[in-house]
Each structure stands twice: as C-alpha cells, then as structure tokens.
Amino acid sequence: MGWRWFHEWGSPKWFYDRAGRWQRVCGFLALALLLVGTLWGLGFAPADYQQGNSYRIIYLHVPVAFLAQALYVAMAVCAIVLFVWKMKLADVGMQALAVVGFGFTVLALFSGSIWGKPTWGTYWVWDARLTSMLILGFLYLGLIGLRSAIKNPDLAGKACAILVLVGVVNLPIIKYSVEWWSALHQPASFKLTEKPAMPASMWVPLLINLLGYYLVAAYLVLASMRTVILDRERGSAWVREVIERD
C-alpha cells in the first residue's frame, strides 16, 4: 500500500470515471448551497447601515474574488506536482483551472465595478483590490494564450507551469505594491482568523455562498478536466470503450 493512490491518480481512466461522479455531487451541493445562501443574503440578511441594500452584492463578489485567487494558488500546486512527480493529470488540472479562474476573475471584476457605482460613485476606481484583480486577469489570460500558442501539449504544459510558478511568487509582491500605491483602500471585511465585525445573520450566508462557489468551481474544473482528458487520450482504447458504453 502507500503508492496505490499515486498510480490511481496518475491513471486518466480512473480519474475520468471518478470525476464524473464527483462532478455530479459537487453540482447538486453547489446548487443547493447557492440557492440558500443567495436567497438568504438577498432577502433575509439585514441591510447594511452604511451601504444599504447595495452591500448585498457582497454575497457574489467576495466569494468569487476569493476563488479567483484561490484557483491561481491551486494552479501553482498543480504546477509543482507536474514538475516534481511528472503527473500528467496535474497539467490537465492547470489547463482547466486557467479557464475557470479567468471566468471567476472577470466576474469578480465586473461585480466589483458595478458595486463601485453606488459606493464610490463611479464604475472604475484604481482601487488596490480592483487593480490587483485586473493584473490577475491578465496573468490568467497570458496562461490561456501561451497554452493555445504551443502545439505540443507536453511542452505547453511545462511552459505554463513555469509561468504559473513565476506568477505565484510575484502575486504577493504585486498585491503589496498595488496596495501601497493605492490610497483608496478599504480593509478586507472578511477574514477567517478574526471574528468578523458583521452580525451572524450577515456573514453566515456569506460563508454558505463561499462554500457554494467553491463547489461550483470544483464542478466546472472537474467537467473541464474530463473534456481535456478525453481530447488528449483520444487514441487510447479506454476512451473508445467509454464512448461506446455511453
């Protein structure tokens, strides 16, 4: 024992079958959690004493922005796994994470900018968090572009892994420099380590939604990974079996 999991995780067929089941579970749980969290946040949480009802955007914006960054870190973990253990699945994961991460970044940017209108009076402020999110979006875009430009998938995966690792080392530097640069900065309202200043009726739905969006991201990443696996392994016998079975 001990190494069996490693071989299983290295086997695309094993993963393809499992991921199909996980994906369904993630999808249903995400749907349920998001329904509860979003309705709670929109209808049942009390209005903010300063921002009124506009703060209700937080139930989408904050989890999505959090995930946009978390997905980049997940990609960095995949990059390390790819370099250290040469696990092809990690490369598939990177490819899927880049697309989903870019989608979440775009959503975070647009929701943040719409939230900015009632809060700051304008759609775009060069606020620290918006700016570093914009740079994160460019990083994701660069990864997608780099992968699509290199024809050899092995080469593309390793090139992307280098870029991801250089990016993940730079992200904190970018974040701190942008924060230092920007004077218009409000402190993050939600930290896992501190007791939040919000009442429970406000942060519980936020936590539910955070979990929900995590599961949505997992659903999307798993679905996308399955597609990539199918495409890359199209010559192998098991893929043909799977397709004939369906």
Binding site: T38, L42, G52, N53, S54, R56, I57, L60, H61, V64, V99, V100, G103, V106, L107, F110, S111, I114, W115, K117, P118, V216, Y219, L220, A223, S224, R226, T227, L230
Partner: peptide
C-alpha cells in the same frame, strides 16, 4: 431593493450568465 436594485440584480444576473455560460461551454466542448 430600493435604491440599489439596479446594481444588485444585474450583478447576480451576470454571475448566472458567466458561471452558466462556462458550464454550458464546457458541456459543449465535451
């Protein structure tokens, strides 16, 4: 959702659009 309904609802609509769009696009690719 006075007076911020015009901001709150489009954000959630956009969220549905982006995430649903991603899901549909991935299904299509599959």
């Amino acid at each position: 959702m006075a007076p911020h309904g015009i901001y709150v609802w489009p954000v959630y609509g956009l969220g549905l659009l982006v995430i649903g769009g991603l899901a549909i696009w991935i299904r299509y690719q599959h």
